[in-house]
């Protein structure tokens, strides 16, 4: 039996579900497959939680071989991975994380530009990651879409785009600042993920949950440095490909389950507070009103990339078609307006 040493790392700690699942699913499954054949064994050198690099260098670190395997956080790499941002510029397309990851997995096989965007960085993609669905959490109840006009909502980075045309102002911040921002009136609420709101206890200051189901977003991939990959014996490569697919599928399912469970837990934990947590679904009419009030951000995004010679229009169409083919129902046909 031959032992192979590999470093596996991440910018985020293992308490983040998809980072923890690198251990419990990707690594464990790889070990399991290899153990069956008994030919190879992997000695994992784990450096999770930013021991080797921070969130600002997840792509570079795999590309440069600082780690062999790592989670690449594509949402923070809009310059290097522009096509991978597509789902962030097409909100209200699907709120099903498992479905979206299936589409991305398929696109990676069928869309050469998308695959090339990743593989130009000297790496091999093994599995994919995404977010759960975005909703609106506010300190005061809102009765519908019209109420957003004039509100200040914490929506950092690309999420600011999702508020354009709604009349709401986007306030910058981060998961750690939302709580005090809302408490002190810097913002009236937040556009965020149930998986982020629950551990940060934001429901304590923003107990009115409007379930908008704005949709999930593609967030990145588990990747291995190409040089490290090329040195692996074939049976190990095969085991990792299989483990990566298993990881992606399990992660998608896990996201959907956790999202529902997180909302339930909020209601439970926030039942005794001054204003108990209550979840109100936004009406279909209001969801449509919201997405139609927005400027065509998908087109803006695609135009910018097409100018630089990237086939972003075709990719956006393929993404939304992929969602439809699996039974998803995009609220706005972003692809018809490109």
């Amino acid at each position: 039996q031959e032992t192979i040493s590999l470093t596996v790392a991440s910018s985020h700690p293992t308490v983040i579900p998809w980072v923890g699942m690198i251990q419990t699913h990707f690594m464990a499954r790889t070990d399991e497959i290899l153990a069956e054949a008994g030919e190879y064994e992997i000695n994992w050198n784990e450096a999770f939680g930013g021991q080797l690099y921070k969130a600002n260098a997840t792509l570079d670190s795999v590309e440069q071989g600082i780690t062999d395997i790592g989670w690449v956080f594509s949402m923070l790499e809009p310059a290097k991975l522009p096509m991978s941002q597509a789902s962030s510029y097409a909100p209200f397309t699907t709120a099903d994380a498992a479905l979206q990851l299936e589409v991305m997995e398929e696109l990676f096989e069928t869309n050469e530009a998308f695959r090339e965007e990743w593989e130009q960085y000297n790496l091999k993609v093994l599995g994919f990651t995404g977010t759960d669905s975005y909703d609106v959490y506010t300190s005061e109840p809102i009765s519908g879409f019209a109420d957003l006009d004039g509100m200040k909502l914490s929506a950092p980075g690309v999420l600011g785009n999702w508020l354009r045309g709604t009349g709401a102002n986007a306030v910058d911040g981060s998961l750690t600042s939302f709580y005090t921002d809302i408490q002190t009136g810097v913002s009236d609420g937040v556009l965020s993920l149930a998986l982020g709101v629950l551990p940060a206890k934001i429901y304590e200051v923003a107990p009115h949950v409007t379930k908008v189901d704005m949709g999930v977003a593609f967030s990145g991939a588990i990747a291995i440095n190409r040089d490290s990959w090329d040195m692996l014996p074939e049976p190990v490569q095969e085991a990792m490909v299989e483990a990566g697919a298993y990881y992606t599928e399990a992660h998608g399912r896990d996201l959907n389950e956790r999202h529902a469970a997180a909302l339930e837990k909020m209601v439970e934990a926030g039942a005794d507070q001054g204003a108990p947590v209550e979840i109100t679904p936004m009406s279909e009419a209001d969801r449509e009103a919201w997405v139609n009030a927005m400027p065509n951000i998908a087109k803006e995004w695609a135009d910018g990339l097409e100018e630089r010679g990237m086939p972003a229009r075709a990719f956006m169409k393929a993404y939304i078609d992929g969602v439809r083919a699996r039974g998803g129902e995009p609220v706005r046909a972003w692809d018809d307006e490109l």
């Binding site: 690099y53 921070k54 600002n56 570079d60 670190s61 440069q64 071989g65 600082i66």
Partner: peptide, 21 residues
């Protein structure tokens, strides 16, 4: 532990990204 190239890149990353907070 690894090689010169990785060491050089990590040195560059320390200079450019480690204080970028």
């Amino acid at each position: 532990i690894r090689n010169d190239a990785v060491a050089l890149r990590m040195l560059g990353a320390a200079g450019n990204d480690s204080l970028r907070e």
